[in-house]
Amino acid sequence: MELNFSKDQLNRLYQYAVALCGNRDDAFDLTHAALERMITINQVNNPMGYARTCIRNMYIDKIRKDTRYIHEDIDGLNESDVIDISESGFEDIQITKYSFQQCWSIMNIEERELLFLFFIEGYTAQEIADETDSSRGVILSRVHRIKKKVRNEMSDTQHDDNAGGLES
């Protein structure tokens, strides 16, 4: 197929790859490989979505080979475990840059991917579910888990700050 991504779109694909692998070089390789794969196919309805799927699948293939990848379903999280939460649950969260970086470093692939699609691409939970081949319930449950991690991190940071204050 003929590819016509703008520089901004290429950047977003690259950032999506960064969200998954957390590494600039690997992210570029994934983006490059996804484009290479796309020129071999005839036509797709949503080139950006298809490119992200390529990046995602290739990254999962890569880490499966490295035997480091554990999918959420394997962790025991499935539709029956879904916690009923609001889709706009992120909007009330405030976080410092330091805490965010701490959180980011302990988030798994699905969580980083969800934050990218939610905040950078502006997708709804249902759209994320469609693109990542998950259910909406699993996505909302993932949102809940991210919020929990953020709150825990903020709480720990605050506790550390308070403890430091008492000592001084």
């Binding site: 950032q15 969200a19 992120f90 909007e91 405030q94 410092t96 840059k97 965010f100 905040f119 950078i120």
Partner: peptide
């Protein structure tokens, strides 16, 4: 402190 959305955008 900043909104989580802003932190994510700044990160990327």
């Amino acid at each position: 402190k900043d909104m989580l959305s802003n932190q994510v955008k700044q990160h990327f």
